[in-house]
């Protein structure tokens, strides 16, 4: 993996270049250790060292065995936690345990507010953003339409299915018009067919918004179908052991699962992951 940062040094320090392909997020030598609860001082090495550049506008997926530190990685990029070692930057500025503007996060668990209607949930994303009421309405209506929630605007999350609640969370992020969208296994709880369709919707919004998408998933086929590049992580402490370029066209959809290349990509991912997944479930490597 070549560092893009070194090749395109920004000449003017005021604003990072918005050319597609420029590094938007970069991680350098990033490690995360947790203090093991209960025992004094003992630490768990959860992640790293990680070096990674996310290009502006790309769709990057991360796959890895369970517990390898995928959510930990996402929280570092989101600014929800601080790296034990190394640097994380977003658009050239370091992230120090502070959520940068322009980043939207959809979590692994359902994060819709059960006391707010769908519409109010989505409007919540706009609380901090100063825009005139008309623009506000436009963004909310847009997000509702894009996520297929228009006729459920006045429903409460409890009246929706799990997949629809996740779509509410995505919509709440969309209204802020993020330049980077972080998705942590957003469809983990859904059945296979629904997941494929939700994948199409994510591709759609990626194309329409032009945002960078960073998707964590445990489903190899999902990664192979959606991403431009796929990072494969080792068992804990998670490191990147492979980065796969898929070479899909930008206007792809779930029908590419029928293509030959799709099978090849999935097979390569599994080759990289098999041994790591065995480690993650506590079995020794049998094959050389």
């Amino acid at each position: 993996m070549t560092s893009i940062m070194t090749t395109s040094k920004p000449i003017t320090p005021t604003r990072t270049p918005s050319a597609p392909g420029a590094a938007q997020v970069s991680l350098r030598g990033v490690d995360k250790e947790f203090i093991r609860p209960g025992r004094s001082g003992e630490t768990v090495h959860a992640l790293g060292p990680i070096d990674l550049d996310l290009r502006r506008g790309e769709f990057f997926a991360v796959v890895g065995p369970s517990g390898c530190g995928k959510s930990t990685l996402l929280e570092l990029v989101a600014g929800l936690s601080t790296a034990t070692r190394g640097d994380v930057t977003f658009e050239g500025k370091p992230i120090h345990n502070r959520i940068p503007d322009g980043v939207g996060v959809v979590f692994q668990e359902d994060a819709s507010f059960p006391w707010l209607s769908v519409r109010e949930n989505i409007a919540f994303g706009l609380r901090r953003i100063k825009i005139d009421p008309k623009e506000r309405e436009r963004r909310i209506e847009n997000a509702l339409a894009m996520m297929g929630l228009t006729s459920f605007a006045h429903s409460f999350p409890a009246q929706l299915s799990g997949g629809m609640r996740q779509r509410v969370c995505i919509a709440r992020t969309l209204v802020t018009e993020p330049r980077l969208i972080l998705l942590d296994e957003p469809f983990g709880a859904l059945d296979q067919q629904t997941r494929l369709l939700m994948g199409d919707e994510v591709l759609n919004l990626w194309r329409k918004t032009g945002a960078t998408v960073f998707l964590i998933t445990h489903a190899l086929d999902e990664a192979a179908m959606l991403a431009d590049r796929i990072g494969v992580m080792s068992a804990r402490p998670g490191r990147l052991i492979d980065i796969v370029e898929t070479g899909w066209p930008r206007d792809r959809d779930s029908r590419i699962v029928q293509e030959e290349a799709f099978g090849a990509i999935t097979a390569r991912l599994w080759r990289s992951l098999r041994a790591e997944s065995m480690k993650a479930i506590g079995k020794p490597e049998v094959e050389p």
Binding site: A78, L80, I99, V103, G104, V105, F107, Q108, E109, D110, A111, F113, F124, G125, R127, R128
Partner: peptide, 13 residues
């Protein structure tokens, strides 16, 4: 749920 508190942080509350 912790995820709701994380959501609050992401929304810079």
């Amino acid at each position: 749920p912790r995820v709701l508190l994380k959501t609050a942080r992401v929304n810079q509350l």
